[in-house]
Amino acid sequence: MTSRSRAFEGKVALVTGASSGLGEATALEFARQGASVVLAARRAERCEALTRRIGEGGGTALPVRADVARPDDVRAMVAATLDHFGRLDCAVNNAGVAGPMRTPVADVDEAQWDAVMGVNLKGVWLCMKHEIPAMLAVGGGAIVNVASIYGLKPSDVGHAPYAASKHGVIGLTRSAATDYGQANLRINAVAPGFTRSEMVDPERPGGAEHYGRMVARHCAMQRLGEAEEAAKAIAWLCSDEASYVNGAVLCVDGGSATRMY
C-alpha cells in the first residue's frame, strides 16, 4: 500500500459493500490516507482477506459481516464499529445490487422489485439511521451514498428498479443533508458511470462489445471508469477539503456523451 496524504489519520471510516469493486477500492483509499476502516459486506471471507491486505500495508481494518437490507445486521455493524474503535467519522454506503436487466417495467416481479429496493434504497436509509447518531456523538462527520448515473436519468438497459432506487438514494441524500448540515454532518452522493467491477466486467463473453456500446452512449471519454477513480472522489467528499460541500451529487462518469455533432 503506497503512502499518500494522511488526511484521515485518527479517523474511523465504515464502507459497506467492501468485498469487491468500488467498495474495496474505497476501503483501500481510506486506509492509504490513514483511516481505520470497517469493512462490511455479506461475503465475510472477502472482507477478512482485505483486512489482511490492509494490515500488511501498515493499516488497520475490521471485517464485519452485514446485509444492509437487514435492520439487525446494520445495527450490529455500527455497534461493532463503536465497540472496536470507539467512534465513527465517515461512512460510505456503497452496497448495492443490479436487479433485473432488459426487463420492461410491467414484467418486473414484485420480489425482484423488493429485493432491489431493500438493498439499494432501504439499505442506505438503515445505514444512515444508525451511522448518524454515532457521528453526532463525536461532533459530526461525513457520509457518502453511492448512487449512479441512472439516478439522474432513465435506465436504457431495462432495469427500472435499479434506476428508481438510485433516484431515491439521491433524494434521500439531499434530504438528509438538509436535516443535519447544521450539526456539522455533511451528506453527499457520488453518481458513478460504467466502472469496472464484478457487475461491469468487459472480460466476460460479449462484455467488450456490450460495454463499448454503453460507454459510447454515456461517456465523453469513451472508456470504462476504474474503481480507484471513484474511490478518490469519495475520499475527497469525506475530507476536510470538501468542508463546504453538502447535499451534492458528484458525477464520476467521464462526462456526458450527449452532443449534436
Rank of each mutant, 00 (worst) to 15 (best):
R4P: 12
V15C: 05
A18K: 02
L22K: 07
G23H: 12
G23C: 00
T26F: 00
G34K: 07
A40D: 08
E48V: 14
A49C: 00
R53N: 02
G55C: 01
G57H: 01
P63K: 02
V68W: 02
A80P: 01
A80M: 06
H84K: 12
F85T: 00
G86D: 07
G86W: 05
G86A: 01
D89N: 14
A95C: 04
V105Q: 10
D107H: 14
E110M: 12
G118K: 11
M128S: 02
P133Y: 08
A134E: 09
L136M: 05
G139Q: 00
G139K: 00
S148H: 11
H159Y: 15
P161Q: 08
A163C: 01
T178K: 15
Q182T: 12
R186G: 00
I187T: 06
N188I: 02
A189W: 06
A191G: 06
A191K: 07
T195Q: 03
G206E: 07
G207S: 07
A208T: 13
H218I: 01
H218W: 15
A220K: 15
R223S: 03
L224A: 05
A227W: 02
K232I: 06
A235K: 14
L237N: 12
C238F: 12
S239F: 11
L250Q: 13
C251H: 13
M260T: 09
Y261H: 14
